[in-house]
Simulated assay, not measured.
Amino acid sequence: MSAEKPPLPFVYTFMAGAIAGVSEILVMYPLDVVKTRVQLQTGKGTGADQYNGMLDCFRKIVKNEGFSRLYRGITAPILMEAPKRATKFAANDKWGKFYRDLFGQAKMNQSLSVLTGASAGATEAFVVVPFELVKIRLQDKASAGKYNGMIDVVVKTVKSEGLLAMYNGLESTLWRHILWNAGYFGCIFQVRELIPKAETKKGQTINDIIAGTIGGTVGTIVNTPMDVVKSRIQNSPKVPGQVPKYNWAWPAVATVAKEEGFGALYKGFLPKVLRLGPGGGILLVVYTGVMDFFRQMRDGENA
């Protein structure tokens, strides 16, 4: 991550990103389930299928479906997290080097951090789309009896909608990841520049928590509208002869805003920001710690 530290081979970056991603999802996954449920809700009302906010959603899921439902669909994200987070950090490192060389910069700056993050997000999006589609369809209560698990979602989706349906929502996912990663990595760079340099390992961990949490929060503020429409696009099965209501990202944003109001574009924001704010801190702390561990191993071998 830091330009001042010697680079490590790609395999180390990949492994560190994977470990960081799985650590984050094991802690924060229930918030993702709640976020998806709220985002898929298109109306207002009462009853077990309608939620008046994050806490109401938590309460109704646990009461009506059982606590384990908060972890429904976690297999797909866990399988996704390793390549997803590994790709995020590895691509960020690779794109960072590419842009530094391209623009003749010895070190990262704010503009390059935003550009690098956006490029890493676009790269990451191609990896995660099929996993995201499976996760969204398993998390939706309306499909609880339709699928028996991750493999069943894949088989039924491919059979009824075709193989390319696994990449439904690619465009909106690209926008979501470009915006989040640009905000995340751009803020990490800026915060690290503004706060005092750490003199101890504990101080470095605190700085990483602060930088990662602020980065995750800003990224979430920027990309939530795209996350809302992505969830709806991926949860809309393709029917021959019919044009889906939610198909392309920006027209879907306009449709949601027109029919439900601008605030609907931020449905699920609270559980999302509570996950990705602190989650961004967890990611950065674990990633930095694992990379430092790998550096120590390498230095020990070379001693």
Score class of each variant (00 low, 15 high):
residue 1 M to Q: 15
residue 1 M to L: 14
residue 2 S to L: 12
residue 9 P to F: 00
residue 9 P to D: 11
residue 10 F to R: 10
residue 11 V to G: 01
residue 12 Y to R: 12
residue 13 T to S: 12
residue 16 A to F: 12
residue 20 A to M: 01
residue 24 E to S: 07
residue 26 L to P: 13
residue 27 V to L: 13
residue 27 V to G: 09
residue 30 P to S: 02
residue 33 V to I: 06
residue 37 R to A: 08
residue 39 Q to W: 05
residue 39 Q to H: 06
residue 41 Q to C: 00
residue 43 G to I: 12
residue 43 G to H: 13
residue 50 Q to V: 15
residue 50 Q to D: 15
residue 57 C to H: 04
residue 58 F to V: 03
residue 59 R to K: 09
residue 59 R to Q: 09
residue 59 R to T: 15
residue 60 K to V: 06
residue 60 K to A: 12
residue 64 N to S: 03
residue 65 E to G: 08
residue 67 F to D: 08
residue 71 Y to T: 02
residue 71 Y to F: 09
residue 71 Y to I: 00
residue 72 R to Q: 07
residue 74 I to P: 08
residue 75 T to D: 13
residue 78 I to Y: 02
residue 79 L to P: 15
residue 80 M to H: 14
residue 85 R to V: 03
residue 86 A to M: 12
residue 88 K to F: 15
residue 89 F to W: 14
residue 93 D to C: 12
residue 94 K to R: 08
residue 95 W to G: 03
residue 95 W to F: 01
residue 96 G to H: 01
residue 97 K to P: 00
residue 101 D to P: 00
residue 103 F to L: 00
residue 103 F to R: 00
residue 107 K to R: 11
residue 108 M to D: 13
residue 111 S to W: 11
residue 111 S to L: 10
residue 115 L to F: 00
residue 118 A to V: 05
residue 125 A to Q: 02
residue 126 F to A: 01
residue 126 F to V: 04
residue 127 V to P: 15
residue 128 V to S: 05
residue 129 V to Y: 10
residue 132 E to A: 10
residue 134 V to G: 04
residue 134 V to Y: 04
residue 138 L to A: 01
residue 139 Q to L: 13
residue 141 K to P: 03
residue 143 S to E: 12
residue 144 A to W: 11
residue 145 G to L: 01
residue 151 I to K: 06
residue 154 V to S: 06
residue 156 K to A: 10
residue 157 T to P: 14
residue 160 S to I: 14
residue 164 L to Q: 08
residue 167 Y to K: 00
residue 167 Y to M: 00
residue 167 Y to L: 02
residue 168 N to R: 06
residue 169 G to I: 01
residue 170 L to F: 14
residue 170 L to D: 12
residue 172 S to I: 02
residue 175 W to G: 07
residue 178 I to Q: 01
residue 181 N to P: 10
residue 182 A to H: 11
residue 185 F to A: 05
residue 189 F to H: 07
residue 190 Q to A: 15
residue 191 V to K: 00
residue 195 I to T: 02
residue 196 P to W: 06
residue 196 P to D: 07
residue 200 T to Q: 03
residue 200 T to D: 06
residue 201 K to Y: 15
residue 202 K to T: 15
residue 203 G to H: 07
residue 206 I to E: 14
residue 207 N to F: 12
residue 216 G to F: 06
residue 219 G to N: 10
residue 220 T to K: 03
residue 223 N to I: 11
residue 226 M to K: 04
residue 228 V to D: 07
residue 228 V to C: 06
residue 230 K to P: 11
residue 234 Q to Y: 05
residue 234 Q to H: 06
residue 237 P to W: 05
residue 239 V to R: 01
residue 239 V to M: 02
residue 242 Q to G: 05
residue 246 Y to G: 01
residue 250 W to M: 09
residue 252 A to I: 02
residue 253 V to G: 08
residue 253 V to E: 05
residue 254 A to G: 14
residue 255 T to D: 14
residue 256 V to Y: 04
residue 259 E to S: 08
residue 261 G to C: 02
residue 262 F to Q: 08
residue 270 L to R: 10
residue 270 L to M: 13
residue 271 P to L: 03
residue 278 P to N: 05
residue 278 P to T: 02
residue 278 P to R: 01
residue 282 I to S: 02
residue 284 L to N: 12
residue 285 V to Q: 00
residue 286 V to S: 07
residue 286 V to C: 04
residue 291 M to H: 08
residue 291 M to A: 00
residue 294 F to I: 03
residue 298 R to S: 14
residue 299 D to V: 05
residue 299 D to T: 11
